[in-house]
Amino acid sequence: MEDFMTTQMGTPMGTPEGDDYSTITDDYSSGTEDYSEFSSCDKSYVREFRKYYEPPLYAVIVSLGVIGNFLVLWIYVHFKSRKKTMTDVYLMNLAVADLLFLLTLPLWASDALRGWTFGSLLCKFTSACYKINFFSSMLLLTCISVDRYIVIVQTTKAQNSKTTRLLCSKLVCLIVWLLAVFLAVPELIFASKKDDPDSDWQFCTLVYWANEHNRTKILVLVLQIFMGFCVPLVVMIFCYSCIILTLMKTRNFEKHKALRVIFAVVAVFVLSQLPYNAMLIVEASQAANVTITNCDISQNFDIAAQIMKGVAYTHCCINPFLYVFIGVRFRRDLLKMMQYYGCVSPKGKLSKLYGTPFRASVMSDTDTTQALSL
């Protein structure tokens, strides 16, 4: 698994010597260093930190994420007779990707507590499943920003091509999933169980084939940084900048609310993903040219990596609330569904608050999911 769950961020990864069958291991627990003066670095403190940090954090992420994403799918199915929009399709696929991602976290929590006890095949499958849903989630967020751009900035074009856009959204989702599977191939190839020399535990990690300057590892990291962060960030900044310029020209009473949501969407993405990807950049640099040789610095770096990885994982439980439940129509749909199942009284305060007609606006068109409206 190419993340900091089992990555030795601070381990010198110089050019290995030997034949083509030697390996490079991304595992802070294994202590596989190429330099004798660094080989005695004890990573037990990092393992202990992971043991007490990851399981409770993952429990919170899984609990919130399953509830939020399950409600998204429930609403989608409950109103299946209604004609779906392009963003509806993206949000449904995003919920599926997040739910599948969440299913892998209990296994990684168990890995942190007692090592990997589920076999090599499940190690490869879980690592690949994690990466597939990570990439698909990031790319679907990109698709949502493009759809918002088309609906708000290219309004006339969007109105004239509703049917075509809906068909395109399904094709785009298929391409996203296929691309995510392709990007997860390294996990299927390199994920393997690795013995911990300091205990009788085993860990699920990536064991690379050794080659000059660790080209394989660097290529995998660059692909993850580029496709999982750089491309989505650039597209989101472009689309939302154009949306902001369009909204600033309008005199709509919901404009300021929409702007706040846009800033929240971009801020959450950057704050959750930037630190994690910055660590990946450092790891790529470490693989290409040893930059950290001090044991204390290496340990501190590993701890920081664990924290940043946990922050990055929160995106799968924030997405439903950020991209769905802030939308006017989804909130109304949730209320109607709760009324249908008797959870909320039709005459209650919530029904009076969200049951009255709302004014149409540039950010709350009736034909598109309210992914940016309040």
Rank of each mutant, 00 (worst) to 15 (best):
V344K: 03
K157H: 14
Y130V: 09
H213I: 11
F330Y: 11
A360Q: 10
Y323D: 09
S199H: 02
V66E: 04
K131D: 11
C41Y: 06
Y323I: 05
Y35Q: 14
Q339M: 15
I61N: 05
V72T: 02
F358M: 10
V77D: 12
L245C: 09
V282S: 02
S298K: 01
S36R: 06
R50M: 12
G327A: 07
P232G: 04
V265E: 14
V60A: 13
L166P: 04
Y354S: 01
Y21K: 08
G115H: 00
I24C: 03
N252G: 12
R82A: 11
E212P: 00
L64I: 14
V362D: 01
T291Y: 05
L353Y: 13
F134E: 09
F321H: 13
V290A: 09
I175Q: 08
G355D: 10
I75K: 02
M338I: 13
F238D: 08
T25I: 14
K309V: 07
Y323N: 09
M138W: 02
F101V: 07
A210W: 06
L206M: 15
D19R: 07
Q306R: 07
S145F: 10
F253I: 13
H315R: 10
L166M: 08
W74Y: 14
P275S: 05
C295M: 09
G10W: 00
I318M: 11
A97M: 07
A305K: 04
C173V: 13
W116D: 02
T291M: 15
V207I: 11
S110D: 12
Q8Y: 09
